[in-house]
Design a protein around this nucleic acid. Sequence first.
DNA 1: AGGTTGATTGTTAAC
DNA 2: GTTAACAATCAACCT
Length: 524
Amino acid sequence: MDVRFYLPPQSAAASDTPCLGPSPCLDPYYCNKFDGDNMYMSLTEPSQDYVPASQSYPGPSLENEDFNIPPITPPSLPDHSLIHLTDVESGYHSMCHPMSQNGLLPFHPQNMDLPAITVSNMLSQDGSLLSNSLSVMQELRNTERTQYASHPQMAAMRPPVQPADIRQQGMMQHGQLTTINQSQLSTQLGLNMGGNNVSHNSPSPPGSKSATPSPSSSVHEDEGDDASKINGGEKRPASDMGKKPKTPKKKKKKDPNEPQKPVSAYALFFRDTQAAIKGQNPNATFGEVSKIVASMWDGLGEEQKQVYKKKTEAAKKEYLKQLAAYRASLVSKSYSEPVDVKAPQPSQMMNSKPSVFHGQAQAHSALYLNSPYHQQPGMNPHIPAMHSSLPRSIAPKPNNQLPVTVSISNMAVSPPPPIQISPPLHQHLNMQQHQNITMQQSLGSQLPMQVQPALHSPTMQQGFTLQQEYQNLINPTSTAAQVVTQAMEYVRSGCRNPPAQTVDWNNEYCNNGGMQRDKALYLT
DNA sequence: AGGTTGATTGTTAAC
DNA sequence: GTTAACAATCAACCT
């Protein structure tokens, strides 16, 4: 019998993260504390800069992926000195992100018939950020139906049973679980549920096991191997258990440094909402949560959806910027690589995929127009082979459990290994340096490392580039401290007075940023 | 197809 | 041989 103890990737890092309560909390997700008066519930909120632990680390993907948006990491970091503050103590909690600092949720069981759980990242009806607080009236079990019974208005608002409702009904069969009253949830979220005030129970049968089955891994296996393993007594994939056969997913390998595509509006909504749902129903399965989120999304007002869509669009724009920088760095890398790599044989050059480079070069030709390198005929034939050697050898295998540098520069890239670059190649890096010139102007003094040879690594340069881009977005003239100050001012003002020239603080900080950093900190 | 989350498990590398 | 880290997979739903 093989007994495993699974330690979530975040946990190790979380152990030294101030998990905010009287006692240490090793679980970054369910960090519940009770200090006598307040119960703190940590709902670590996934965020855009959250890098999944199970991220693959493939070679550079140079295909024509024209849509990747990397995580955007706001420049400021949460002040963990405030983590113990309650709403009263930290005035702005109630205005914006009651738990954005650390994911802690003030919980006052003595004050309520219905304990409230506050969840961030929610939008108000008019599209502006509510305090991002979602006070979920946590119903005790079996209260859902009585809600409608005792509140005729709500009962009247209850829409005809919809498919999602049917699903929910099915989910309500179990009474053991904490009930989520979605109408109240929505109300607390400030979301216009469009009359879709359907209560959602997220039953998890007592003793229900994990939300998801654990199919056997199939890292190497083909479909045929699946059968053999299954027959060998291993756990059968859920797809074999009376469910529709699932098409085997074959994730293509991606460069870990490659900007990540922006997630859809729905995905953002899912991120924001699932934490609340899980907070209410820790035992809810993913499927149940997903259904609830979906029904909430259905009931979401168009304005609210638009807010999410705008965020997606903003992320898209940011992605395009970062993608350009990323691809530029790839090309720059490709120039530096050959130093230590044998020149490819002619046949290799023929077999290499010209599109790999050419596609990139074309896609970003504007970036390279000034590159002397590109003006040198006869150089291109080396490029494909250079790329072929790029992948993992250059990009260190990211380890999410390691203390990935928390610096802003790390938001999109992993710490690059020192790359030895011969002097001539530094010339070619000028291309990128040119791109980064603004970055260097403002960050140069702050980043003395910049002069170190290792930082000629395109990867690092890219990181700085992105950092600078982000900073420029916020306020081209701001220092990091000023940025933080602006953020704090904004938050204190209830997220209603975005500082001039700032990036969309609603999106980047008030709505997500704080939690993003919480998540990021857990990861570190 | 790929994104959301988290749990689980197989594989692999390191000791 | 043990252990830790990584990668893959699944759930329901949306884009």
